[in-house]
Design a protein around this nucleic acid. Structure first.
Ligand SMILES: [Mn+2]
Ligand SMILES: [Mn+2]
Ligand SMILES: [Zn+2]
Ligand SMILES: [Zn+2]
Lengths: 145, 145
DNA sequence: CTGCTATTGATAATCATTTTCATGGAATGG
DNA sequence: CCATTCCATGAAAATGATTATCAATAGCAG
């Protein structure tokens, strides 16, 4: 959760994998942590270009995948055709409410739902390794307008 | 649910929309209903080519979208990058268990989960218009192997 | 420093999906 | 039955997101 901790986790990952710590990777991680969650590769790329116009899209893309491999970020898909990333909260899990009008995303976690998912899976002989729950609708401000 | 009913619903839709009933559309619907559920455009296209090699991919694609518009089919995305379609059970809803090893898909519906989703949404001031719940894991046969 | 190797970024390749457009076919009204 | 109109079709190209390629560059171990 603290940015410093995330950064050291990433540097450690690079070390153990024989990868190099570079200016770009530092910059991308810095901006990724500064920016709000659920941003697409393009979102982050555009933000980064303002600070360093020499950064390449491919590098941003590869670095975000690295973040995911390393466990400091998670990839999401909300049905608009592009991958989004968010910083991961160390083993914590949450699902999403998405406003189809304004795009607002609210995170939630409901242990009762998680429990029922396990039950359902067990009834069908499945063991779950991950799941995906997204609720699409309109947020209160969009309904008033 | 009965195929004849689905077919007449489609023909009726074509009529009311000023669209034409064609050999291809009849053929595609026939094969769509015959084939198992959750097939991709390509899956259906390949099946159709065996019977009529002159059919075009674009036509299959457009016709599947027509089915969805008309309400006789629903589009799904299970994270493998391609859209899948299944015949819709008239207002009935279900979610999916997906085996990440063999690709098997099991359908389920749990009113308790649906209920909790509504509660969670209400707590955050959202009104849900649709949702998506997918449980990924391994089925019993894949775990034994 | 030097040299080895990973990384970078411009560009091209992929892959599913969607569009384009010339041709063919379905329906309607003589 | 014919003509006309307009929709549908299918081959091919366009799109958009993602991923691969490759020559030039930059970490880093020695
Ligand atoms: Mn989130
Ligand atoms: Mn299904
Ligand atoms: Zn909203
Ligand atoms: Zn399986």
């Amino acid at each position: 959760m603290p940015k410093t901790r995330t950064k050291s986790k990433f540097r450690e990952y690079l070390l153990t994998q024989g990868l190099k710590s570079t200016q770009q990777r530092e910059l991308i991680l810095e901006e990724f942590l500064r920016a709000g969650s659920h941003l697409s590769t393009e979102d982050l790329y555009l933000r980064l270009r303002k600070k360093n116009p020499r950064i390449g899209y491919a590098t941003v893309h590869r670095t975000l995948k690295l973040f995911a491999e390393c466990g400091i970020a998670e990839q999401r898909h909300f049905g608009d055709g592009q991958a989004r990333y968010e910083a991961s909260d160390q083993g914590e899990h949450h699902d999403h409410l998405i406003c189809v009008t304004c795009g607002r995303i609210v995170e939630f976690e409901d242990p009762r739902i998680e429990q029922l998912q396990d039950e359902v899976a067990a009834e069908h002989g499945f063991s779950i390794e991950r799941h995906r729950l997204e609720l699409y609708g309109s947020c209160s401000s969009c309904r008033q307008a």
